[in-house]
């Protein structure tokens, strides 16, 4: 049973909880208790708490996920150069080891908190919560969370972010969304990075990548980006502008934004649309 609100007791399962339902002896002599609770409900609880922190200060939180080397930090550097004068930005960096990425961000005059996960292959809501308390949210407009470079594990953990962005760099090949469906399905926007390499790596077809993303029943826009060209991240900057405006509109109504795809726990708690 849900410890907090009982919201997961529905018409479909109420009978299991009633006396004489599944609360009876089993073949092996024990008592069976129906639970119907997300495995990561504790993480999801902290994630909701993080989201409340962000919303209190109207800070748009964006989770960046990709394989290692897809260009998450380079995209953030270019974003800081382009938007640093207009918006107050900060970054939470997730890596197994080193402060390297946080130092790259700080070199541009932006606050960065480095989370070193040791052997953990993903960020979870607890780690982000600790990092958030090292930042002054009242002084921020957008918080970027650069997840651990990994196309598998980060997809399963809600951090409290408002939007997910999954990066796919051209050298990785256009079929990554078909190979790693969970993380690309979670994306509110897919950033195709290093498109300046398309003339060299002509086996990467943006159209094919797009087809693989649509096959995940995703309407996420595909943003073609290069941090090495003038105007190469304009579509990303426009997307950010749009998301920040939408977020502020939601906040003004006392609502929040959530990633398009919600983990099971959020749906059970009636949080998803």
């Amino acid at each position: 049973m849900c410890d907090t609100c009982g919201c997961n007791v529905t018409h479909g399962n109420r009978h299991l909880l009633a006396p004489g339902g599944k609360l009876q002896k089993t073949a092996s002599g024990g008592e069976a208790f129906t639970v119907l609770k997300n495995l990561l409900s504790e993480n999801d609880h902290i994630a909701a708490h993080n989201r409340e922190h962000f919303d209190r200060h109207q800070v748009l939180a964006i989770n960046l996920m990709s394989s290692p080397g897809a260009g998450k930090t380079a995209l953030l550097e270019a974003t800081i150069d382009a938007l640093g004068d207009r918006y107050r930005l900060a970054v939470i960096e997730g890596d197994l080891e080193t402060e390297n990425d946080a130092q790259r961000i700080r070199a541009r005059g932006i606050d960065a908190v480095q989370i070193t996960t040791g052997s953990a292959c993903h960020l979870d809501a607890h780690m982000v919560h600790d990092a958030v308390h090292q930042l002054d949210l009242a002084q921020l407009d957008i918080l970027f969370i650069e997840n651990v470079g990994n196309l598998v594990c980060p997809a399963s953990f809600d951090l409290g972010q408002h939007r997910n962005v999954t990066l796919l760099s051209v050298p990785e090949g256009d079929d990554k969304p078909a190979k790693y469906p969970v993380i690309f399905r979670a994306a509110d926007a897919v950033a195709i990075t290093k498109v300046d390499l398309l003339p060299l790596l002509d086996d990467f077809q943006v159209q094919r990548a797009s087809g693989h993303v649509r096959a995940l029943a995703s309407s996420a826009p595909l943003l073609e980006l290069s941090t090495r060209r003038d105007g190469g991240i304009d579509s990303w900057l426009a997307w950010l502008d749009g998301e920040l405006a939408a977020y502020r509109t939601h906040c003004a109504r006392g609502a929040t934004l959530r990633p398009r795809i919600q983990p099971e726990g959020a749906r059970l708690h009636g949080l998803a649309p």
């Binding site: 092996s28 024990g30 208790f33 639970v35 997300n38 495995l39």
Partner: peptide, 9 residues
Amino acid sequence: LLLLQVELE
């Protein structure tokens, strides 16, 4: 990703 049931002694 659900915990459905726990059987206890």
